Simulated scan of single mutants.
Amino acid sequence: MIERADQLVLNYVSQAADAAHGVLRADQRLDFARRLRARIEVERGGSQNARQVAKVLARFGDPAALVEREARRLAEAGVATARDPAGVGAGAVARPVSGPASGPASGPAGGPSGGGATRPLPAVTDEEAPPGVRAYRRIAQDNLGRRQGMGLPFAGLRRAAMSSANPMATGGRDARTIVKEHPRDTAALAILVLAALLVPFDLPAVAIFQVPLVVWAVGAAMVLFSDAWSVRDRFVGAGAPLLGYAVGGVLIGGLRVGIEAGMAAFVTQFFDVSGTMFMIGTGAGVLWLAYRLLDVS
């Protein structure tokens, strides 16, 4: 979990550095990336929770918007950038830039770094953030509100499906990226799917256990010991097949035989439908875990 949280920060800073190509000079890009990383660490407050770190990064907004904000700051200070090597205006004079309340400027423009005055990135607020940052923050807050409320249940999966046509839909992260970063977790989901697919086959039991149950137990153990999901999500995803088998079998089997048919007929109907309900429960659990995995990442 710690590695995943740090990777989110590194990915975000890398995106900002990439966006700065052609906008800031090399030394300015390094200085900007360093200050951005430091500001993120301050806002992060030492948290190693991937969900919390993702929320912090969402507050910062689009990395490209932060680059434009930095370019405007340097332009206002009369400092030449890669976009405007000659500086702002023919008679522009470089001048010191006062640092914000969060920290003093490190020096005047044209100092030793050659990239103008450096200062810690200020906390991103709605009042001071540029329009692009505010727009992306509103989108992130709306998405969080929908997840916490009764919003569309599989918006994360739909965004992942759209990412090949529109990389901005998921910030450049799609299903293939998730598989690369979570090989054990995706393997657990594949094992659960395999358990459901084995139900229709009349395979010999292992000791006293049916093969689909054994395969499910392996996948469920991998899910329960994973740190990619919350405890609730792990139990929901791993327990959905058993819930479908037991509760679904009882309900559907009871409805099919009625009250007066007797226990023998009910047991027969239970075993006829419980396998199908196990498969349905497995599909629901895997979809939920996949959605949560994409949602967290």
Score class of each variant (00 low, 15 high):
I2E: 10
A5Y: 06
L8R: 08
V13Q: 11
A20D: 09
A20P: 11
G22T: 11
G22Q: 11
L24T: 07
R25H: 15
R25A: 14
A26Q: 14
D27T: 13
R34A: 15
R39E: 15
G45Q: 05
V56P: 04
L57G: 14
R59V: 11
F60L: 15
G61R: 12
A64I: 03
A65V: 06
L66H: 02
V67M: 00
A80T: 07
A90P: 04
A92E: 07
S98H: 12
P100L: 10
P100S: 15
P100R: 14
A105P: 12
G107W: 07
G110E: 08
G114Y: 02
A117V: 07
P120I: 13
P120H: 11
L121D: 09
P122C: 02
A123C: 03
P130E: 08
V133W: 07
R134L: 12
Y136E: 13
R137C: 10
R138H: 08
G149Q: 10
G151W: 11
G151E: 05
P153H: 07
A161W: 12
S164N: 08
A165F: 10
T170I: 02
G172T: 09
D174R: 10
A175L: 12
A175N: 00
T177G: 15
T177Q: 08
K180A: 14
D185F: 13
A187Q: 05
L192K: 02
A196N: 02
L198T: 07
L198I: 04
F201K: 00
F201E: 11
I208K: 11
Q210R: 14
V211L: 12
V211N: 00
P212W: 06
P212A: 05
V214M: 07
V214Y: 01
V214K: 00
M222Q: 13
F225P: 00
F225D: 01
D227C: 00
S230I: 01
F235I: 14
G237K: 06
A238H: 07
L242P: 04
L242A: 14
L243G: 15
L251H: 01
G254M: 03
V257T: 08
V257E: 01
A261F: 03
M263Q: 09
V273H: 01
V273N: 02
G275S: 05
G275W: 04
T276M: 01
T276G: 10
G281N: 02
T282S: 07
T282Q: 01
A284T: 04
A284P: 00
A284R: 01
G285C: 05
V286W: 00
R292E: 15
L293C: 08
L293I: 12
D295F: 09
D295R: 05
